[in-house]
Design a protein around this nucleic acid. Sequence first.
DNA 1: GTCTATACGATGATAGAC
DNA 2: GTCTATCATCGTATAGAC
Lengths: 218, 218
Amino acid sequence: MTPLDPGTKTQILDVAERLFAEQGFAATSLRALTAAAGVNLAAVNYHFGTKEALLVAVFERRLRPLNERRLAGVDALMREADAAGRAPSLEGLLDTLFRPVLEMAGEPGGDSCAKLFARVHLETEAEALESMFLAQFCAVRDRIMPALLRALPDLPEHELIWRLHFAIGALAHTMQSTIRLQWLARGKAMTTDREATLRRLVGFCAAGMRAPASKEDR
Amino acid sequence: MTPLDPGTKTQILDVAERLFAEQGFAATSLRALTAAAGVNLAAVNYHFGTKEALLVAVFERRLRPLNERRLAGVDALMREADAAGRAPSLEGLLDTLFRPVLEMAGEPGGDSCAKLFARVHLETEAEALESMFLAQFCAVRDRIMPALLRALPDLPEHELIWRLHFAIGALAHTMQSTIRLQWLARGKAMTTDREATLRRLVGFCAAGMRAPASKEDR
DNA sequence: GTCTATACGATGATAGAC
DNA sequence: GTCTATCATCGTATAGAC
């Protein structure tokens, strides 16, 4: 395996990422995939075990650096806040949580993966995918929850959990595709500039998270 | 077809709704499905054309009455508001948009469909599904957008579209499953009572939609 | 360790008899 | 409308060559 020869495993990952995003997971046969990658059919099962495990590997390769960026972002915000003797900014924390996801869509190959991120959920049997996803997000959750609790000191923890859940839903729906948004707009032109989208998403979620808790839930 | 004999088509729909939700779409074979329904294998292709078209039919059967309830709700709120000479309440409109979805999960058979229904928002693989969904939601969009614009008179329309997009994402993510929420809570017990969930969802989204637009986007 | 050729069981879809 | 029979194709497994 030289720098010029990416190796069978990497080649499969690259082609799989593209084809899964273009045609969908179920619609992409291993025969078409391996033919496009110039490798043997059995190579997938040799290197990854099953087709589903290949899908997990495709995601994991993108998810790991993405979550590392999130962790570094939260740490930086917390250091700043500690140095200044104040709580971290809610908007800053949300930006740190969302930005790496939107930025991935701008990377070469990442746009394919971003599309896939959203379409994972139809197949219940993809349990390995769900657990990998949760495991990857585990460190982020443990780092960002205390930070959010400091940014929102008046919010009970169980309320924060619900609202983070809602915020992640807004992010996921935004990432999925612009098709629904365009349709929602009924032909009206919508700017899909990354920074503007991020600003709107952060603004919406920050306001939602700051809402006073209803007295029944306090 | 008598009241006691639901007919082959209905029988297939009922069993498909249950099995797709229990095992997933890809994992449910037409052979197992037709065996469980007590009909012949070829009956699915005769009545629905393809397996994917059967999935679309399963959704459509639940979606139609759901969206009718939404339309009736928006109309009722607008009549009230017009009679009182004021704008409709944002919280009321959001409740009308969300409630039928959460209520479907409490209906017999609806809980199965609710699991699948939520996944539609995150799935773009089945194009027929997407277009059916958009067509069904079309009337709701055309009725609720003017109402929301009246409830939020200071918000530019393109900002409202973005925020409705975010709100639908929060709803979809909430419906998808409670598994991620439980995981987010790290074992902390979370109430998943329907009214409390609705109250939290409406509160979060209402606050998000009321946020002042950033000056770059105004 | 890697890779290849090949075979196996199951799947979605279809044609034609009744 | 319903059935049986049949087809191409799928994911997977394995034996054996380099």
